[in-house]
Write a protein that binds this DNA or RNA. Structure first.
Lengths: 232, 232
DNA sequence: ACCTGAACACCGTTCAAGT
DNA sequence: ACCTGAACACCGTTCAAGT
């Protein structure tokens, strides 16, 4: 990952048509590479310009400010979300969970960006319009009423966001809860959290390890079971 | 909210015991006021020092860097979470939802801090140890096995985080989805999201307005129903 | 130990000027 | 329209020096 270096000498003035050195798309792609490789803090306007071999100010002709760059990145990420094609031969439960998995995958492809993506309401609601269709479809097939569909979709999206946030905040895909949690629990004043203490101890003895994949699946299963019970 | 102004002249050197002008607690409380009033970006070390009437560098004797200040704020927020006292006379379902409400309330008391709070894994898991006990207790009373309890608690926390993130990102407590959503949906290419389009249209006609309170409650109800179906 | 002042190596963005 | 260079008003943090 070599730095493209200084903008080079002179070369000022408007480039001829077709010779533009920059575009919104090219800028966003470069920004995404920086964020993926080195995190949000490394993505400064000056750094971005430097990797593009361009004057920092040039970027402002394509995007109004730094916030717009980040918003554009959120857009990019959701644009890469794989569309779940309608298929009446799968159970609505599977259509729902497949859609949820695609959503999770899109976010975790760029963990350094998760915080930005999940908190950028504008970007989120823009894609919600497009990416949320499979959720609507699955629940419609299940036979829910419009108001119920909206409720359930919101709940699933909230779960997806919370889960993705947690997943992105941790580097490893699987890690042992046991030592960390046991140490914390041991440090607690006697009787302060008795149930927690007991549950963790019982699990600790059989060797608990948390992994995100099964945590994700069990969360989805819980919600699906809730839908079946409440609305069918 | 008047600025406390410049550190004042001279007054250098170590203060006598009991005359310290600063403390970790005082610094964090000042930082929280800034964040609550003007947001995360306004909370700079120099600004913080200025409102404390102190040299910017003084802060570094109590907290190692800016990140530590933010981490301390996350701590503070969860410290304000109201403990749910054990009470066997309430149904476990109510104990669970009451605990969830307390968690939501703690986060939304400082919306500008939500992003930091929810993504600071260290802070989150530190309080999890203490604040998660009521969730464990309720599910234990319901009769779940340890492994099931952990699964369900994680799912609820994920939902809480996703929900809180969304709630914090919006200024108003209630807002009309209709105009915004209808506009977006109208702008869609024909047939691109047919179910969404239909569902939104049906709701739009009877006048949909989303409000966070009922969205929260219906999410909780869904999860509780899932627990009852899957594990009881 | 606790507070200060000057300094370093950065930022995002405005503005005037080039073609 | 698109790119540049200099400048403005900031940052977080290190370091040496005070008491």
């Amino acid at each position: 990952m070599v730095n493209a270096g200084k903008p080079g000498p002179g070369r000022s003035g408007r480039p001829r048509s077709g010779e533009e050195r920059l575009s919104r798309q090219a800028i966003l792609e470069a920004a995404l590479r920086i964020v993926d490789a080195e995190g949000m803090d490394a993505m400064t306007m000056r750094r971005l310009a430097s990797t593009l071999g361009v004057n920092p100010m040039s970027i402002y002709h394509h995007l109004p400010n730094k916030a717009a760059v980040f918003a554009g990145l959120a857009e990019l990420v959701f644009g890469q979300l794989e569309a779940v094609t309608p298929d009446d031969s799968v159970r609505w439960q599977d259509e729902l969970t497949n859609s949820a998995r695609a959503y999770r995958d899109a976010v975790r492809a760029h963990p350094n960006l998760a915080l930005q993506v999940l908190s950028d309401t504008a970007a989120v609601s823009d894609v919600v319009v497009v990416t949320v269709e499979p959720f609507y479809r699955a629940l419609d097939r299940a036979g829910l009423e419009p108001r119920q569909i909206v409720e359930v979709v919101n709940t699933i999206i909230d779960f997806l966001h919370g889960f993705s946030l947690g997943e992105a905040s941790v580097q490893a895909e699987t890690f042992d809860l046991a030592p960390d949690l046991l140490r914390r629990v041991r440090g607690l004043p006697e009787g302060k959290a008795p149930t927690l203490t007991r549950v963790v101890r019982e699990l600790g003895e059989i060797g608990l390890h948390y992994d995100f994949d099964s945590g994700f699946e069990s969360g989805l299963a819980l919600i699906v079971a809730g839908v079946e019970t409440r609305f069918l």
